[in-house]
Write a protein that binds this DNA or RNA. Structure first.
Lengths: 149, 149
DNA sequence: TTGACATGCTTGAAGCTTAAAACATCTCCT
DNA sequence: AGGAGATGTTTTAAGCTTCAAGCATGTCAA
């Protein structure tokens, strides 16, 4: 089906539009960025902190990327870096108290923005979209995994 | 619904995974990038070329972004920049012969990749996803337009 | 135990991206 | 015609991102 291209472009456009809106609001409301927010979110879900490699896997970005991001967030006092007790190669990141406060505020606003953005869809539509995106991710595993092998 | 966050995260993840795969293949197969490909694609659809502003609107990026991208593509000989005959402020971009050839090859491969990526979904699923993403984009107009006003 | 390979992280170069400032040109109202 | 405001482009600074190279540490099998 040649329509696959149109499906993909529509998916990319919709996602890009929403992402751009969230970036705008994070900047306007909290003077921060989506990557910073995502890193704080990853740490917020991990009570014992995460190593750099764990963070980069969760964020789907390279290790080098996390190095710079973590350096900036540490400079802002939102996260702390400490050597991993189990593995002397690893650095473990965790939220500081200030980081927890900042993320709590950002996260609440973010959740509200997302609700607002999807409020134009009926419950059934949201559920169907959620299911189809899940199917898409599952189907992806076939196509993408093969490279790594 | 608090599930909206999960819907959004799933949408973002699925899109990011596909985008990453396409980037990988563009790099491996053609030593190029998605933004370059997108710019060529925009010009390919416009027989008389496009101004920088038109390109930046279609690509949903800032003007300054297009300035740099166009400079690199011009240096590679894939596009030409010439003053717009109607508006002396404007610069009009168009594909060179080499650019047309390069894009034709990239575009064919890209279309095949996208087909492959979505091949795990049934026809009905693809159609439903396409429709729901359209609904999402429509719903967005309400939420996002209001800022601009 | 020791060497080969894997894993964790950082660095540097290059490119992508934005926001904001600056400047040129255009439009349109009076 | 003049001038106010809109539009088109570039530049700069800062941040995001990748890839590849390099170094430190870990693992595991011979």
């Amino acid at each position: 089906m040649a329509d696959d291209i149109r499906l993909w472009l529509r998916m990319l456009t919709a996602t890009t539009m929403i992402e751009a809106e969230l970036r705008r609001r994070l900047r306007a409301g909290f003077n921060t960025t989506l990557p910073r927010f995502d890193l704080l979110a990853a740490l917020d879900r991990a009570p014992d902190g995460l190593t750099m490699a764990e963070v980069s896997a969760r964020m789907m970005v390279t290790n080098g990327n996390v190095t710079g991001l973590a350096a900036r967030l540490e400079a802002e006092g939102l996260i702390a870096r400490r050597p991993d007790p189990q593995d002397r190669r690893a650095v473990r990141l965790r939220l500081t108290a200030a980081g927890k406060r900042a993320f709590a505020a950002q996260s609440a606003a973010h959740a509200q923005w997302v609700r607002e953005i999807f409020s134009g869809l009926a419950d059934g539509e949201r559920a169907a979209l959620h299911r189809l995106l899940g199917r898409t991710k599952d189907a992806l595993r076939g196509t993408i995994q093969e490279e790594a092998a």
